[in-house]
Each structure stands twice: as structure tokens, then as C-alpha cells.
Design a protein around this nucleic acid. Structure first.
Lengths: 199, 199
DNA sequence: CCTCGAGACTAACGAACGGTAGCCTGCCCG
DNA sequence: CGGGCAGGCTACCGTTCGTTAGTCTCGAGG
């Protein structure tokens, strides 16, 4: 069940093409061709090319934000929050590498008000990270001097993955997440002593 | 002297616009308008829109590679090489944020053979980093498990800068470079003992 | 069996694109 | 002061774009 609706198929084809050639570099005719259709038929299922882009990007940013919030909500230890949050961050950029890359590179192709909305959503996501790192420093569990820059560095480290990761490559998502977690923890100078052995 | 040639002005205007709106999102008429010209006049100074993009991207990748090689050539200490190389990496992405972002996001807009050439140049730059990190580990001065992933993470950390850095912002290039250097050194687990006190 | 609507199609629109042809102006050098 | 050319310009070409209009087909429901 959950047979792929035509609208969903179109969106997936568009996601692949936007990933490969960019928004302005992809035509509606090309999207249609991927599904053995003609361009005008697409408009039985969508409103416009621009709306397609808005949906892809907004859904992606909303998803990673929700994943982050869910992952960090189930523990009180701030380093464990960080670890889980970053694992989600990395895994998102591997599983949704296409959407993530589009959300990163095609923001400029968004018309208003979509562009401002997305920028605000991204600002919020960044702020979640900054706050978390700040809390870790405040509790003496991390030692970075600039929570702002640490947040940027950690987010960008993950985002970069979307540019080179291939799910069929030699590197598994789990290995990648584990190694990158170590990177991120060392960036903030985390004290990863066991979660419940407080002094 | 060195009055800005028209060709140079065009390239700078194009760089700004490609940065703001992307390659396919920018028209020759818009580039011309920035210089109070009409589009056809541009062709007195350039070959094609595509060649403009090729020049911008290839020059940028060639420049950062040369900067890296120059910076690392003047010391033998592998950690000091790493430090200098990364400082150059960060500073490049602040000083040439526009070009760097274009080189990162518009590779797909390059036609062949330009695209393959640029990808090869980037692969080479990545390889320089991987080799340097491998050497640091071999000498016992760094401790990362995966030189490959460490190289990716470090490069991506720097690249991300080009997306958000603004030269007129509150953050100075020097402060940024310093803080990020600490990040990068901790990612590879660097032993930053003094360069010349070998056992 | 007939209808009716979802969803494909063809034809075509106006706009915008990258680029060319050809002209005109004004400055530099003899 | 006069010729030439560098480098602007206008006019316009053919292509491709996103999108609309209107038609046809086919399968499900009464």
C-alpha cells in the first residue's frame, strides 16, 4: 500500500534533478521526461515549479529541526543531547543528501516570502545548536570559547556531507556518524565522562 | 595605475551576481546593468557566459591550492604545516567568499570539459589535505582514525564559512581563523607540542 | 451500458534567454 | 585636422522557458 502518488513521484524526480543540475538548470520538460510524461501534465498535480522548490526545502528544514528536537528531548545530560543531536544531524545529511544539498544551494532561487521563511527556519535551527553548546559550556562539560563559531563549524561539517556522500559508497552511515561524532565532540572540547557520574 | 580593465569589472560584477542568484539565475543583461551597459557590449570583452563561470571557478580552485602549497612549504613540522594550511584555507573562504561559494555550488552548471577539470582540481586539493593528515598520524602527532573523513570534515568546516561570512560583519578574519584553527587541530587530535622540541 | 471525471495529451502563448550583425561615436595618433 | 578603431549602442535572431487552453481516453460507479 501507500502506492506512490503521482504528486510524490514528481517531487522525487524534481528532487533528483534539482540536486544534479540546480533549480534554474532544470526544466519542467526534463522533470516530466523522467516519468515518461509531458510537461503540461505535471500541472494536474502541482501548482508551479517554484512551489515544488518551496515544498522540498521547507519540508527538509522542518524535518531536520524536528528530528533534532526529538533526539535531544529524551535525555537530560547535555553532552548526550549533543551526541544524539549531532548523530541525527549527520544521518539526515546522508539519508536526505539530495534535499539537504538543495536546501543549502538553492535558497537564492526562492522567491519571497519563501526565502525569508526558510532563512528564519535555518536561523532557528542554528540557534538550537548554539543554545545547546552554550549550556554545555555553562555546565562545565565543554570548553569552546565561541559557542557561535562552534555551532557554525559543527553544522557546516555535517552539511558538507550532503555534497559527497553516496549511499551506495563504501562508507556506511553508521561508521560515518560515529567518526563525525568524535570530531564534533572534540571541536567543543567536550568532557564525555559518563552521563550520570556527576561529582 | 592598474586601472580596472573593463574585462575585470565585468568579471567582478558577474561574481557578485552569480554569488547572489546563481549562474542560471543571472542573465547577461543583469551583469551589464551593474556596469550601466547593455548586454551585447559585454561580448567586446568576453567569449561567453559559460567561459566567465569557468574562469571564476578554475582561478579560485587554483588559487587556494597554490596558497596552501606555499603556506605549508616553509616549515618541516607537520602540525605547523597543518596550522598554516588551515589558516590559509579559512582566510581564503573569507577573502574570496563569493568565488568560493560559486566554486562550491555552481560546479553542476559547468559544461564539459570544464566540469571534469574542476572536479579533478578539487580532488587534488582534498588529496593534499589527506596526505598531510596521514603524515601527522604517521609521525604520532595526530590521532584521528580516518584521515579521509578528517580531511572532508576540515575542508567542509572552512567551506561553510563562505556561506555566512560577511567582511563588514562584527567578526574579524583573524579571530575567525584563530578559533577555527583550534577546531581543526582538535578534530585530528593534534599534539601541538612545540615544533622543535622533539624527543 | 452510459456517464463522468481524472489525468494524460497536443498546440501554442508570451517572455526571457544567450548571442550576432551592423552601426555610430569619440578619442588617439600621425 | 583627419583617419581608424575600440567599444559602446540598437535591432533582432532562434531557442527554450514556464505555463495555459482545450481535447481525448479510459476506467470506475450508477
Amino acid at each position: 500500500m501507500t502506492e506512490p502518488s503521482r504528486a510524490r513521484e514528481i517531487r522525487e524526480a524534481a528532487t533528483e534533478l534539482f540536486y544534479e543540475r540546480g533549480y534554474h538548470g532544470t526544466s519542467m520538460r526534463e522533470i516530466a521526461a523522467r516519468l515518461n510524461m509531458r510537461a503540461p501534465s505535471l500541472y494536474n498535480h502541482l501548482e508551479s515549479k517554484q512551489q515544488l522548490l518551496v515544498d522540498i526545502i521547507e519540508d527538509d528544514v522542518a524535518l531536520i529541526t524536528r528530528e533534532f528536537e526529538d533526539a535531544t528531548a529524551t535525555t537530560d545530560d547535555v553532552i548526550e543531547k549533543f551526541r544524539r543531536g549531532f548523530e541525527v544531524h549527520v544521518r539526515h545529511h546522508t539519508r536526505y543528501a539530495h534535499e539537504s544539498k538543495i536546501a543549502m544551494t538553492e535558497v537564492a532561487a526562492l522567491e519571497e516570502p519563501g526565502q525569508s521563511e526558510v532563512k528564519e527556519m535555518r536561523r532557528h535551527y542554528t540557534e538550537l545548536w548554539r543554545t545547546l553548546i552554550e549550556q554545555a559550556v555553562a555546565e562545565g562539560r565543554a570548553s569552546t570559547q565561541s559557542t557561535n563559531l562552534a555551532a557554525y563549524a559543527i553544522i557546516d561539517m555535517g552539511i558538507g556531507i550532503a555534497r559527497w556522500f553516496r549511499p551506495d559508497g563504501p562508507l556506511s552511515e553508521g561508521t560515518l556518524a560515529g567518526t563525525y561524532c568524535d570530531f564534533a565532540l572534540s571541536v567543543i572540547g567536550a568532557d564525555s565522562s559518563p552521563p550520570r557520574s556527576r561529582t
